[in-house]
Design a protein around this nucleic acid. Structure first.
Lengths: 205, 205, 205, 205
DNA sequence: GATGAATGAGCATTCATTCAT
DNA sequence: CATGAATGAATGCTCATTCAT
């Protein structure tokens, strides 16, 4: 299953070598952590050479970033459509939480890697790119919410609290599941988190 | 202000040297990260010698753990009393969120350090100690919630989702604030998160 | 101007690719040094491929040697004729110094490269070829000087000191100019060095 | 003999380890060249550890610089006194050349190393320090020469040509000797170079 | 001729840790 | 208690060179 992650995620990437290294690196990072994984570990697992790794990714940071943005793209592709589904506010809000949980449950490796690598990527040379993508992603959400506030469906709250109210609970549980602190997959509780998000955001008349 | 953190937190520690090293190490870890901070960096900042550092903390992991459990103790001392305050369920739930946010806002360095070091401590030789403390801490909470469920104040939900529902939103925002992604301190939005937590957990009759 | 160096120096080289690589390699070596210049740097600047570079020059050492001997040929072509000009000893000696300075001033890139690469070439597999060329070049000079000594025009001195007495001062200044330690081009002081060389070598009756 | 170089040159250096590493590094650099000598080569020869080498010198560049400035100090200590010897201009000029040759002949290892490392040091982070020392050193010489010009003993020439006229010939021969191109030590020809320098600089009435 | 992916030995440097003083 | 010289395994990365296409 893990073997196929990048065939699905990066179907355009013909170069099997590059994709293969990404796959192996992901496994190494998840097993051993970002800093503890050495280039040589990845080389052994992927059965290539350090030269090849550097040829394709420049350096370790570049490899991490390539992996991270691949995950981000995949995450985004699952999340976006939800906002555009014409439906009631409740359905959209709950749909967003469901989508988030669906992605994490479907791609636990990529999800864990994103939690693992976010701080590192944000600090490194690709930090600005990451920040830009985040801004772009949330601007859509904020536009949708602003509309909901105007119509009287959504509570009027400080803008910066919305993402936390919407995803905070689900994310917290996903972290716990991904790190093994709780055994039950978030998908089993998706409705709980979806409903709580709606309770948190809904304007009660 | 930062200078006094450990005088308040570790009033018993007479040895100014040890406390001084802890303070300097905290600053280094926050500025440079756990792995990137070297013993020599801490030595320079604290103007001692590597020998002294090893004398007091055994090794780098021990230094991190000392710092982490100091923070955990402080955090716990602020959080616990809340559960014991006799009051309405709503007040207790909201009080817990307020306490959490109060601590993070009052000890941002320690809070950031806890987010920074948790994974490392959990994996290392002090992992079991950390897990035990967590179990102990949450068992009180779960007992209190079970009571609320029985009485009909609290929604009956999977036990493992409660912590996420209670703290997830506040924690998510605190992370964002501590990492600089949002500028407004969580204390400014404490009521929002407190109320949302209550909405998420309250049994609506 | 630099663009044309090899069109003048290597007019026979039809293959513009080869000449282009030589030109780019020269620029790289001068800017970054012999060892610090990598094949990949040259590849980037010349917009070719490593394969092409290796196809034409065998290896890095071969590229350096090709450049060096090109410079040596050019240098020789300017210097030789001077010895054959029928004239007074003074004119010949001064002419040699003038020629040397004229070449360095006219081909500062090649001259700098010769100073840069001589040690490397002398140690490498082309060392013997270089030594042979040097012997050949100086044998003419020594023959001419021996004649001058016999006739009583030139001081009788240890044979091995003549090259140093003749070119040492000019060379020292040229090095200083090429490395930027002095701003005035050697051509401005050519007569000073020419006259001093003659003073050093002339038999005072 | 080589063993004692640094006991004479750095008598104040008590730390035998540091001095020992300097000595071994000098030998390695002379045998193998600056770039081709690896830290590990020096470690093997000095029978210490890489950690110790880095502890004392920071990095390879620092080791080269330490060696270079040690040589420069020694060179300076031999050259300076000559200018202060009250004597005829001819004696001073010839004395300077003799001193130069005497130092090179007496410290061939240090002399070779200076030729080897100068370019590297000049380009690196210690370049400005080197330039400053050179300026200081030559300012004395230029003052002395200016006096000689005023009195009518020394030819009036462009200031920047004097060092080349004075030392160029000797230096050129020393380079040839140190690199093995000529077998006879410069000391055997010291008078030739001293006299030629005087001929080059003397004002002929 | 031209290309560039692949190779892997080799290198400078880092850093936690030890221990004699 | 304090010091800091010494250690050496480990690591990220470089780069000349090869070779299949």
């Amino acid at each position: 299953m893990l073997q196929d992650t990048f065939e699905r995620v990066l179907p355009g990437t013909r170069k099997s070598t590059k994709r293969h290294i990404l796959q192996c690196a992901l496994e190494c990072f998840l097993e051993t952590g970002l800093e503890s994984t050495t280039i040589d570990t990845i080389r052994q697992r992927s059965d290539t050479s350090v030269g090849t790794i550097y040829h394709h990714f420049g350096n370790k940071e570049g490899l991490v970033a390539a992996l991270f943005f691949t995950a981000l793209d995949d995450h985004k592709a699952v999340m976006w459509p939800e906002l555009e589904r014409a439906s009631t506010p409740k359905t959209v809000i709950e749909g967003l939480v469901h989508s988030y949980i669906h992605w994490v449950t479907g791609q636990p490796e990529l999800a864990r890697f994103m939690f693992l690598a976010r701080a590192s990527v944000a600090t490194g040379p690709f930090g600005e790119e990451l920040a830009a993508r985040n801004r772009e992603q949330y601007s859509f959400l904020h536009k949708w919410l602003a509309e909901g506030v105007k119509v009287g469906d959504i509570r009027s709250l400080p803008k910066e609290t919305y993402p936390s109210l919407l995803f905070g609970q689900a994310e917290n549980y996903c972290r716990a599941w991904l790190s093994g602190r709780v055994p039950t997959p978030p998908s089993d509780h998706a409705s709980v988190f979806a409903e709580s998000a709606w309770r948190s955001l809904a304007q009660t008349k």
